[in-house]
Nucleic acid binder design. Structure first.
Lengths: 208, 208
DNA sequence: ATAAAAATATGACAAATGTCACCTGGCATT
DNA sequence: AATGCCAGGTGACATTTGTCATATTTTTAT
């Protein structure tokens, strides 16, 4: 019996997924978490000596969730040395996400763009000790990694909100000129013609 | 027996939802569509005289989909005078969306943020001739409506992609000056200080 | 057919943004 | 102490964007 924990903040998907997977003979959904922090809390509890919480074999988790992202959850699990395996289930195929997920030792990574059968296949494969990565992603996986510096990223993020150069400078405790330089260099690195396009590109690649 | 068509571009949700609903004794999922255009095509076919396609009682549809949005789909159904009822199932509670949906005569509107039971309840209620609108939304429903003109909206959408004034002018067959005027007036209507912020605000309200 | 209202265009100016070359003061290395 | 690197800053200039007042054209209403 494969014991699952599902972490997903979109209630509709969480409930349909949990119900459906639980119908399988070899799978038991032991917990549904609406965010990463709750998932982690359950795992902590279940790993105590005399806990009433059932152990979890596999965590199926979204990435973008309130409080704790799926990637952070995976990192925490690895740090604790728990035997629980992680499968990421997310919307976008952003190279940056995949890279960070792999670094966190996840065993599976697939897109919400795939049908539920694939998730089922992935779960069983991972349960047996295998791995399962969406093939569409493998290509992108090693395209150049995040070319942005930290400051560039921060500036871009604020610019993307509509903040003006001055406001960004204020928030980052930099001079306006420096901010302009950062944004300019970010744009040129990304082959964008202005901050808006740069932010769009960065976001699409999970660099933002 | 309630005959359903589900239109949803996120494959994972589409497949889990379809499988789950189909398990209900009084519901039959007659078609799964991955975008609005396919859904409409099926409905067209099913409304021909001697069609092999089954009639559809209720369409459950997402809003943001490629090719044809859920709202456009609802409008088309109303225009054709088909008896099919529409339930919108979407992520964000944007006042603009709800308003347009109501105008298009939809019978139900609920958020992906609700558990699947609610969808089930809504489907049965609508099948009996009722309506079902997420209560969270009713408050927002009559906040000020879309202040943007069509051109302003289009210009804003392109600006938001990072398109420059000239490029926007080209795409909309307008002069650069006019585009600037539109963006300026859009920004002032939305109390934004530049096109970026204006686009953000418009998007948050479902006006984009 | 005519007047009013809308959509689109122009021009002029201020302000913000993009680009680039070069300056400054740590601070790490040797 | 000398060297070089690096984050941050400056200044100058071109380009783009924002604002507004004022045409011109097209639609709509009467």
């Amino acid at each position: 019996m494969i014991r699952l924990l599902i972490a997903e903040d979109q209630a509709m998907l969480l409930s349909t997924l949990a119900t459906l997977l639980d119908l399988e003979d070899d799978i038991e959904v032991v917990e549904r978490a609406s965010d990463g922090a709750r998932a982690l809390a359950y795992l902590k509890e279940s790993n105590l000596a005399a806990s009433s919480h059932k152990q979890v074999d596999i965590v199926v988790t979204d990435i973008e969730m309130p409080k704790l992202t799926g990637i952070e959850l995976a990192q925490a699990i690895r740090e604790q040395g728990w035997p629980t395996k992680v499968i990421i289930l997310t919307t976008f195929s952003r190279a940056g996400y995949l890279r960070r997920a792999m670094d966190a030792g996840v065993k599976g990574y697939l897109l919400k763009d795939s049908p539920s059968d694939e998730l089922l296949t992935a779960i069983r494969k991972v349960a047996k000790g295998g791995r399962s990565i969406s093939p569409e992603l493998m290509q992108d996986a090693w395209i150049e990694m995040d070319p942005l510096t930290n400051k560039e990223r921060q500036a871009l993020r604020l610019a993307n909100q509509g903040d003006t150069t001055e406001q960004i400078a204020d928030k980052l405790h930099l001079s306006a000129g420096t901010v302009r330089n950062y944004l300019s260099s970010a744009a040129s690195k990304l082959n964008a013609k202005n901050r808006i396009e740069a932010a769009r590109i960065a976001h699409q690649n999970g660099w933002l």
